[in-house]
Amino acid sequence: MQWNSLAEFFSMGGYAFYVWGSFGVTALALLVEPLLVKQRQSQAVRAIRREKAASRHAP
């Protein structure tokens, strides 16, 4: 596809909302997912440490 102007490029042949919306959602997911993975990993490590500490103090 060839665009004659920057405005035509950003309108994406009338599909701008779908194209740029999809791009935005994907970019957001790619940014947020590593943060969520790190948070879940930290929670898992804390839970394991708590279980380990509790098992040491259990009779």
Score class of each variant (00 low, 15 high):
residue 1 M to F: 03
residue 2 Q to F: 00
residue 2 Q to L: 04
residue 2 Q to C: 04
residue 3 W to S: 02
residue 3 W to R: 03
residue 4 N to G: 11
residue 5 S to E: 02
residue 7 A to R: 15
residue 8 E to I: 00
residue 9 F to S: 03
residue 10 F to Q: 15
residue 10 F to A: 07
residue 10 F to P: 03
residue 11 S to M: 07
residue 11 S to D: 14
residue 11 S to P: 01
residue 12 M to E: 06
residue 12 M to A: 13
residue 13 G to D: 09
residue 14 G to H: 13
residue 15 Y to M: 15
residue 16 A to Y: 01
residue 17 F to R: 11
residue 17 F to E: 09
residue 18 Y to N: 11
residue 19 V to D: 02
residue 19 V to N: 06
residue 20 W to Q: 05
residue 22 S to N: 11
residue 23 F to M: 12
residue 24 G to N: 07
residue 24 G to K: 04
residue 25 V to Y: 01
residue 25 V to L: 08
residue 26 T to L: 13
residue 26 T to E: 04
residue 26 T to M: 11
residue 26 T to Q: 08
residue 26 T to V: 12
residue 27 A to T: 09
residue 27 A to E: 05
residue 27 A to H: 03
residue 29 A to Q: 09
residue 30 L to F: 11
residue 31 L to S: 05
residue 31 L to G: 04
residue 31 L to A: 14
residue 33 E to Q: 05
residue 35 L to E: 10
residue 35 L to Y: 10
residue 35 L to G: 04
residue 36 L to P: 00
residue 36 L to R: 08
residue 38 K to A: 15
residue 38 K to S: 10
residue 38 K to T: 12
residue 39 Q to K: 10
residue 40 R to F: 05
residue 42 S to P: 01
residue 43 Q to S: 04
residue 43 Q to G: 01
residue 44 A to F: 05
residue 44 A to G: 03
residue 45 V to F: 06
residue 45 V to M: 03
residue 45 V to L: 06
residue 45 V to P: 00
residue 47 A to W: 04
residue 48 I to H: 08
residue 49 R to S: 08
residue 50 R to S: 06
residue 50 R to E: 07
residue 53 A to I: 02
residue 54 A to N: 12
residue 54 A to E: 13
residue 54 A to G: 00
residue 56 R to A: 05
residue 56 R to E: 05
residue 56 R to Q: 13
residue 57 H to A: 15
residue 58 A to E: 15
residue 58 A to T: 12
